[in-house]
Design a protein around this nucleic acid. Structure first.
Length: 799
RNA sequence: GCCCAGGUGGCGGAAUGGUUUACGCGCAUCACUUAAAAUGAUGUGAGAGAAAUCUCAUGUGGGUUCGAGUCCCACCCUGGGCACCA
């Protein structure tokens, strides 16, 4: 028999699949639908990463299995192509980002096709295509019309190197997420999206979806809902601990608090206060809240606040560890029961009053604050009450007096949605002196990105679009007078918020997607992507989906959540367990692996290397082992020469059907591959293999190694295509073993093993076991106190 | 500091409370070969022993149980995320 040559057969079958359009998702089919989604990649210049492949191959196996199970499967692919690396490349080389994107997507697509992935390429989308971003812009306009997009001046995180405003989420360790340079702050007008309005629903609806628990937890924590009260001092202050109000001895305001400017004529030390404010303005947020830093602050001399529970006058400070955008930008300080306040009070010699009696007596109130709950002390008529009850009663009492109300605050902030860059969707807004911000009329969408000479942001930090005078000038859609276009563009998350909807109806030019097709395909049945997207992309896209559902752009019947089930794949590390990176020179190029060992070997290795959800180091030797396995599979075909060969191994086959079927559903691809190897080893030992056994083996292997199985299927002269066969069901009778190895234990230690019928009774097992020499060695002269018998497994004697 | 995940051979890892180390890699010996590669066969947790066999091993220390990698408690280490959030 000729040698296994993947390079020959893989190209052949990829071509046939394409020509016969076998992976097409059918809009009109009567079969039940199944929507499999993998995160679409950012087509970088580096090409496909072996980590991308992990997600694609795993879900491709699932998609292929679903098709064989009789589902009409939608498994699409596209490009999330707006973004900084391409723009930075344009700045460096002068090559237009659209040209670089075209080149990169062509490269990615070729690499994906080489892997034999069963995407429906007829639905391919690209976020940088004006016909696509027309709808991204349309969504923005709807958000604006509903009051969910607004412009506000805000001290934002600013990267002096990228010349771009950064969302808080994009600043890592005080540095710009993309370039790694130190971030500072800058005042700027920015568009914001009111994701906070959806905070409660984003938490509640997590109950309706099947996500890993840790993903749900991190989304909840990111949103950070906390219930408490807003107390008037009369400056409003948010607290979750109204039970500690009697211990409040001063207030602290954020340096940006508007009250400071308002009351400046009353503040006696205003000059020093101003200095402090200026200093804190320069610090980025992470620096302000860094833990090891000494807490600094300054008292506002000349003004006082009043604690409403006892009408005491208390001093007011400003300190940069208090943040303007959380709560009300002011806190009540309870040094007895909050460690930050305690440290601050010690430093500035402020009174510390204990108002909660600690539960544990070991604690020393002169050394640290007691942050737990307990019984109230020194709290007027609330003394003796438990914290939980006191929270409620004090809030009620103050509410009646008009100096409090219950309140809920979130840690989640509104989403900064503008970038002063070029390679993004232009924000479709026009500013008119008379009418204010007006959306571009929908008939004029898309607002296409104009050609520019250079891609660098202006020195003032404005988008390069600000230099295109002819493009900026436009008539106000409301009054017709001269207006100005918005020159900021959207962040690269914009296009990925709704892309899974577009796949359902990718050619529609009237709507972002037609209601009928959305109803047919949505929601996504299974969505896989990186763990790093759980708090950004996954949360943002749920928010945008909910909005589109609210305004009827997605039909009511689809339900409030876009993704039924979400899983994550572990990243692939370089050999030796360190992260793959260009600088370390340990990047594995999937194309090279395919060239050397074939796509099937690459696919199986990526699944076999370890648990799908865990991060695993790459091991080139492992690919060789998998290649050997495929070689063995190739040679099995020699054993089916005799068409009258009897079915010889139904037991092993049916066990494998069970194992592989269940493992795919649980993303346990590594053990599924192992089961297929065991089956292949078993078949190899036989003199001949029946056609029935052989065809079942090929079917089971085909989602993992689609090319070799298709080729062997054809060579065996079987009908149709292997990938279109019915997924087999196992016979539960055949899965059970008749003879088993019964383990004999003495006091829980294995002392002997016997071959017996699987359904052997306890009495009989005991009889046989106690006659064995090895057992007698231990039991002779001893009393058997107890016998534990687990049918089909073991018998244990306690002596 | 808090939250999450994890710690099993030389390596990647497997294991519904019931034979620890499946499957694969690597290594060793043998066969084929002038030789190497490839392929095939056998072996391969550690210690003791000529062998049968015995003892000890799932990060550490306790506990529950006839029996614990698995359940409970405390701790150590690694990776990831969050962090003056009022």
């Amino acid at each position: 028999m000729e040698k296994y040559r993947p390079e020959k057969i893989e190209k052949k079958w990829q071509k046939i699949w394409e020509e016969m359009d076998v992976f097409r998702a059918l809009d009109k089919s009567k079969k039940p639908k199944y929507y499999v989604l993998v995160e679409f990649p950012y087509p970088s210049g580096e090409g496909l990463h072996v980590g991308h492949c992990r997600s694609y191959i795993g879900l491709d196996i699932l998609a292929r299995k679903r098709r064989m199970q009789g589902f009409n499967v939608l498994f699409p692919m596209g490009w999330d192509a707006f973004g900084l690396p391409t723009e930075n490349y344009a700045i460096k080389t002068g090559i237009h980002p659209a040209i670089a994107t075209k080149k990169n997507t062509t490269n990615f697509k070729r690499q994906q096709k080489n892997l034999g992935l069963s995407f429906d390429w007829k639905r391919e989308i690209n976020t940088t295509d004006p016909l696509y971003y027309k709808w991204t812009q349309w969504i923005f306009i709807q958000l604006f019309k509903k009051g969910l997009a607004y412009k506000a001046k805000m001290p934002i995180n600013w990267c002096p190197s990228c010349k771009i405003g950064l969302a808080n989420e994009e600043v890592i360790d005080g540095k710009c997420e993309r370039c790694g340079k130190k971030a500072t702050r800058k005042e700027r007008e920015q568009w914001f999206l009111k994701i906070t309005k959806y905070a409660d629903r984003l938490i509640q609806d997590l109950d309706k979806v099947d996500y890993p628990e840790r993903v749900k937890i991190s989304q909840k924590e990111w949103i950070g809902r906390s219930e408490g009260a807003e107390i008037k001092f009369p400056i409003p202050v948010f607290t979750t601990r109204p039970d500690t109000l009697f211990g409040c001895t001063y207030l602290v305001l954020a340096p940006e608090h508007p009250l400071i400017e308002k009351l400046k004529h009353k503040i006696r030390n205003y000059k020093q206060v101003k200095d402090y404010i200026e200093k804190s303005k320069k610090k980025i947020e992470k620096e302000r809240i860094a833990e090891d830093k000494e807490k600094t602050g300054i008292e506002l001399k000349g003004i006082k606040a009043t604690n409403p529970v006892n009408n005491r006058k208390i001093p007011i400070f400003i300190a940069d560890y208090v943040l303007m955008h959380y709560g009300t930008g002011a806190i009540m300080a309870v040094p007895g029961h909050d460690q930050r306040d305690f440290d601050f009070a010690k430093r500035y010699n402020l009174p510390i009053i204990e108002v909660i009696k600690p539960k544990d007596s070991k604690y020393d109130p002169s050394k640290q604050a007691y942050e737990g709950e307990g019984i109230l002390i020194n709290s007027g008529r609330f003394t003796g009450m438990k914290s939980e009850q006191a929270k409620q009663r004090i809030t009620e009492w103050l509410t009646r007096k008009g100096s409090a109300k219950t309140a809920v605050h979130y840690r989640l902030r509104d989403w900064i949605f503008s970038r002063q860059r070029y390679w993004g969707e232009p924000i479709p807004m026009i500013k008119c002196e008379k009418c204010g911000w007006q959306p571009v009329p929908e008939k004029d969408l898309p607002v296409e990105l104009p050609k520019v000479k250079g891609y660098k942001p202006t020195k003032s930090g404005e988008s390069p679009l600000a230099k295109v005078k002819t493009w900026i000038k436009v008539a106000c859609p409301e009054c017709g007078n001269a207006g100005r276009r918005e020159t900021d563009v959207m962040p690269n998350w914009a296009g990925s918020n709704w892309y899974y909807l577009r796949y359902c109806d990718s050619q529609n030019d009237k709507k972002l997607a037609g209601a009928k097709l959305l109803e047919k395909w949505m929601p996504v049945d299974w969505y896989n992507g990186g763990m790093e997207h759980t708090t950004l992309h996954l949360l943002y896209s749920r928010f945008i989906y909910k909005f589109l559902w609210d305004i009827g752009a997605v039909p009511r019947g689809v339900g409030p959540e876009p993704y039924k089930k979400r899983t994550s794949h572990g990243i692939v590390l370089g050999e030796g367990g360190i992260k793959m990176s260009k600088s370390k020179g340990n990047v594995i190029n999937p194309e090279q692996v395919i060239k050397e060992h074939g796509a099937d070997a690459m696919r199986i290795y990526e699944m076999f290397m370890g648990p799908f959800e865990q991060m695993i180091p790459w091991d080139t030797k492992g690919v060789k082992g998998v290649r050997r396995f495929l070689q063995k599979v190739w040679q099995l075909s020699e054993k089916i020469q005799n068409p009258n060969a009897k079915i010889q191994n139904p037991k092993l086959i049916h066990k494998t059907i069970k194992k592989v079927s269940e493992d795919i559903e649980n993303l346990k691809f590594n053990t599924a591959v192992s089961a297929l190897m065991i089956l292949a080893n078993g078949l190899e030992k036989q003199k001949e293999i029946s056609e029935k056994d052989y065809s079942l083996f090929l079917i089971l292997l085909s989602p993992f190694a689609p090319h070799i199985t298709e080729e062997l299927w054809e060579r065996a002269g079987f009908k149709g295509m292997c990938c279109e066969q019915k997924w087999p069901k196992y016979d539960s009778k055949l899965v059970k073993e008749k003879k088993i190895t019964l383990v004999i234990q003495i006091n829980g230690k294995v002392r002997d093993k016997i071959e017996v019928e699987a359904d052997i009774s306890e009495k009989e097992a005991k009889k046989i076991a106690l006659s064995r020499d090895k057992v007698l060695k231990y039991t002779r002269g001893k009393e058997i106190k107890k016998t534990i018998f687990i049918s089909g497994k073991l018998i244990n004697f306690v002596i």
